[in-house]
Simulated scan of single mutants.
Amino acid sequence: MRAAIHHGRSGLDGLRVSDAETKQPSPGEIRVRVKTAGLNHRDLFLMKGRRAADAPLILGSDGAGVIDAVGEGVAGLTAGTEVIIHPTIGWDRTEAVPVVPQILGGPTDGTFAETVVIPADNAFRKPTYLTWEEAGVLPLSALTAYRALFTRAQIKAGEHVLIPGIGGGVATCAMLMAQAAGAVVSVTSRSEAKLEEARRYAVRGAFASNGDWNEGLQGEKVDVILDSIGPATFSKYLEVIKPNGRIVSFGASSGDTVEVPLRALFFPQLSWIGTSMGSREEFGEMLRFMEGHAIRPLIDRMYPLDEAPAAFRRMTAGEQFGNIGLCIG
């Protein structure tokens, strides 16, 4: 089979599309013939951290396709079933948070291949209203957004949610989900083109990340901030969040270290909450929520599998608005 394999060098230079062994499912597993898959910044972080001596790895956490083989002991799933893949492995119940969640596509081979073997529990029936392209790019970004908004921030209708750095898959999914839940959404970006695109989705405010946030919000304070950036913007959060507000961090694109004056947290009773990915239980809830509100993930661009390096170059350049995906089968 053909696959996007990382090997031999760190970073994007180590990514090649070549032939790989087609594996058979073990007991409790299924094999999915992948039709579409989605890129995530996690893939870039993995490639950056790998070394030349590391074993070859098929990347990819997101995907959707058709079951073509079933291992012993698997019930309720048969060859020919259309499925969407839940990327987090071994995290079943929401409250049973693992120390470090395991995820498809590192350390186990992932979805950037013509077939992928996964635990049967990680296969969910594909919602019929989604196209294959939408289903393939949805899993990790939508799951991360759902857990951040509903499990961790516990947003309510009428609250004001601020999403700094709009453009990526998680941020755009969160924008649509929060609005569907009755929240008001504002966004920031360094790109005027992305701000203009966000205004098409009836956001309350869309303003420059390096500008005056109070002015951009017209003096209105926010209840929840979804943080994927970290130190580059964190000090601005403390200027625009309401007392009893929640900052939910799920990324660190500008670095890991944030300096916070503690009085700015405890006097206004702020909550700073961490989150990452989500459980199998939440994945099912997320699919039901999206289907109930007919939410479709935004797609920036789809590439054929052989052009996976070009797809990652677009992600590296930060040009996308929505998800970037691969058409495979």
Rank of each mutant, 00 (worst) to 15 (best):
S186L: 07
E72K: 15
L195K: 09
A142I: 10
R50W: 00
T115G: 02
D212R: 04
G28S: 01
A206Y: 00
G49Q: 05
M290I: 05
A178Q: 08
V70P: 02
G60R: 00
A120L: 04
G65I: 07
F124R: 12
F312P: 02
R9D: 11
R280P: 11
A198M: 13
I155P: 06
G274R: 05
D121E: 15
D109Q: 04
E159R: 06
E29L: 01
R204D: 02
H7A: 08
G49W: 00
T151H: 14
S271I: 06
Y129R: 12
V100Q: 15
F267H: 12
P119Q: 06
Q218H: 13
E159D: 06
Q320I: 11
M302N: 07
I67F: 00
R190M: 08
G65L: 10
W213L: 01
V137Y: 03
S228G: 15
A145W: 13
G284P: 12
E72I: 10
D62L: 00
L130T: 08
K194T: 15
D13T: 07
V222Y: 03
S271E: 14
G219Y: 04
E220D: 14
A55V: 06
D109T: 02
K194G: 15
V100P: 08
G219K: 04
L270E: 06
F250S: 09
V170E: 06
A157S: 03
F234V: 05
Y129M: 09
L140E: 05
G245L: 01
G65F: 08
S141C: 13
K194A: 14
G60T: 00
H7Q: 05
R125M: 13
E95V: 11
T22C: 12
V248T: 06
D109Y: 03
A264D: 13
G245P: 02
M177N: 06
K23G: 04
K156S: 12
F267N: 09
D256V: 14
I163M: 11
E319D: 15
R2L: 12
A37R: 02
V161C: 06
L77D: 05
A75V: 10
E239K: 09
F321P: 10
A193Y: 12
A317H: 10
T78I: 08
S141R: 07
G168N: 11
F124E: 10
I89N: 01
D223Q: 02
L57D: 00
R280M: 10
R313A: 14
S254C: 07
D68E: 07
G169A: 14
L104E: 05
Y129Q: 11
L305Q: 03
Y146F: 12
A145N: 12
I5A: 01
D212V: 03
V34H: 01
V17N: 05
G230F: 07
R152T: 14
G205N: 14
F234Q: 09
